[in-house]
Design a protein around this nucleic acid. Structure first.
Lengths: 143, 143
DNA sequence: GCCGTTGTAACAACTATGGTTACGATGAGG
DNA sequence: CCTCATCGTAACCATAGTTGTTACAACGGC
């Protein structure tokens, strides 16, 4: 799979907005965020649109438009962000149904599904440990 | 991302070989395995080739050729298989370097890297809990 | 009405995966 | 030493997801 940087970009964008607001600004434009991320503003708008649907960000249109956080950085975990961007599952079963006449072909699906559910759960537990406030603290500490 | 079924196929192939050998056969052909997996024999040979490099499987050429396990099913964990097929990382950093002049752009990389390492470690711990013997037991129990 | 910004569609480039065909290399058995 | 089933591998195509880009309509404070 091509490596997936969506979570990195989303966390970057939200953290940037959080710091910008903390410095007294009301809203941040996708252009400003894109400059920090080093990508195209449309990429940022697309991603922030998904985060808005999940209730993590909000936007204003018209003049004086831009983006703001819907919740405080401390109230957003990386799991929230991960689930907001709805990634495909890390592992998948067979593309084509295996031979149901074969014992292994018949039983491998449920067996692997059980394992994959445990793995995804562990992954989510780990992501839930870190908030964007933690991320910002790390960033400011290292600077 | 297109969902990744490589681990599923690899586990299926190895488990199939293990059961086949347990029933008294010396080697399994990629053709037989491909029938159970419902795919092309070349796909199986490609994947088993990677597993052989990792010391999990072995093959014989010439007449009476085919595949066998290099270790017992009980001595192969899903983590062994996962590492053998060398998947790309689940998460990646930015594709283009973020703005180093920006506090967030400068510090976000190390901060996210630390999190991603913890996540991968948790994922590996979870995969290491299950051996192919466990998988085969589940399969036979459900049949 | 002006103008900067969002919202969104459309398209191209790139990558990973999976399926397929083709063919040389191998090596036990006759 | 010939045969033949099978491996080993290259080459190619289709599909799908991600990212970057251009273009343009919609919005709304001024």
């Amino acid at each position: 799979m091509s490596a997936n940087s969506r979570l990195t970009i989303a966390a970057h964008a939200l953290t940037w907005i959080g710091l910008y607001q903390r410095r007294g600004h009301e809203v941040a434009s996708s252009e400003q965020i894109a400059t920090s991320v080093n990508t195209n503003p449309v990429v940022i708008r697309r991603l922030l649109g998904e985060l808005r649907k999940a209730g993590l960000a909000d936007s204003r249109r018209g003049a004086g438009a831009g983006w703001m956080l819907a919740r405080d950085l401390a109230a957003i975990t990386l799991l929230d962000v991960y689930q907001a961007i709805e990634p495909g599952p890390v592992f998948a079963l067979h593309r084509a149904t295996p031979d149901p006449e074969c014992v292994v072909g018949h039983g491998i699906g449920p067996a692997m599904t059980a394992v994959y559910e445990d793995v995804e759960a562990a992954l989510c537990r780990e992501l839930a440990k870190t908030t964007l406030e933690d991320v910002l603290r790390d960033i400011l500490k290292a600077a």
